[in-house]
Every structure is written in structure tokens, then in C-alpha cells.
């Protein structure tokens, strides 16, 4: 799914344009950056409510070419500047995380599939 299709589905806004034509195969929606890094896969869209620069760092480490911030929360300028520098596209969805994810999933964007269970204390 390309970025324009994603924007159309969530009625979103492009904040940082991609460096090249991005085609995403799957998305991961989380506010926990370690969780994102634990299960990262190539060509992944990172959907998150976390708008600080660490979201961009995480996308960079995870090689996610695009970020989608949710619930209309406009990110601070440091975040946008870092995204620009790192060449990561940034978009904004006016829907909550749940609804954004639901709309994208319904439109055919895949998730990460079934993950191993990690017992926590």
C-alpha cells in the first residue's frame, strides 16, 4: 500500500514527504518502542501515538520507511526535523490508534501475524 492510499484511507495529512516511492506491506501499531523493535519486519508502517523523536529513531532502527501518528496529535518540530534528516516519511491520522489501525487493516494492510508468547513476571 502506498502512502497516498494510506492517507486516503485514514483521511490523513502528509507532514514529511518520503524520499522515494514507498510501498508498505504491513503495519505495526504500538506506543512501546521496544515492542516495535522486537518484532520489526521490512516495509513496515509504524503507527504510534508517541510523537517524540524516539518514534523516528525507532522507525530508523527498525527500517520502517514511514510513520503514522494517530489521534490528530501534531508532532513537535524536533520530531519532524529528525524525520526529515533520516529520510522517514511522516503522516498524521485524525483517528485514534484503534480506529486508524482498523481502517488500515480493513483496507488490506497486513499486520505482523501471530507472534510468540513471551511470559512476563
Amino acid at each position: 500500500m502506498n502512502l497516498q492510499e494510506i492517507l486516503d484511507v485514514v483521511d490523513g495529512e502528509m507532514l514529511v514527504e518520503p524520499l522515494y516511492n514507498v510501498d508498505l506491506e504491513r503495519a505495526c501499531a504500538s506506543d512501546l518502542m521496544s515492542d516495535v523493535l522486537l518484532f520489526t519486519k521490512p516495509s513496515m508502517l509504524l503507527v504510534t501515538g508517541l510523537t517524540n523523536p524516539q518514534a523516528v529513531r525507532t522507525a530508523d532502527m527498525a527500517e520502517a520507511p514511514a510513520l503514522l501518528f494517530v489521534r490528530g496529535k501534531y508532532p513537535p518540530k524536533e520530531t519532524l526535523a529528525l524525520a526529515q534528516e533520516m529520510g522517514i516519511a511522516v503522516m498524521l491520522s485524525p483517528y485514534t490508534m484503534f480506529e486508524t489501525a482498523g481502517l488500515l487493516y480493513e483496507a488490506g494492510l497486513q499486520g505482523l501475524g501471530k507472534l510468540p508468547i513471551i511470559k512476563q513476571r
Binding site: 512501546l32 518502542m33 521496544s34 515492542d35 524516539q54 513471551i118 512476563q120
Partner: peptide
Amino acid sequence: QPGYSTATSEIREKGFGAGMG
């Protein structure tokens, strides 16, 4: 241990400290 963390809620708000690092 997975999930063990001593991070403050402030850190958690920043997206870290969930005990998965």
C-alpha cells in the same frame, strides 16, 4: 526478565521502560 522494569511513568510515557529492552 521480560516485562520487569523500574522505569517511572514519565519514562513510560516516552515509549520506553516496558521491560523489554
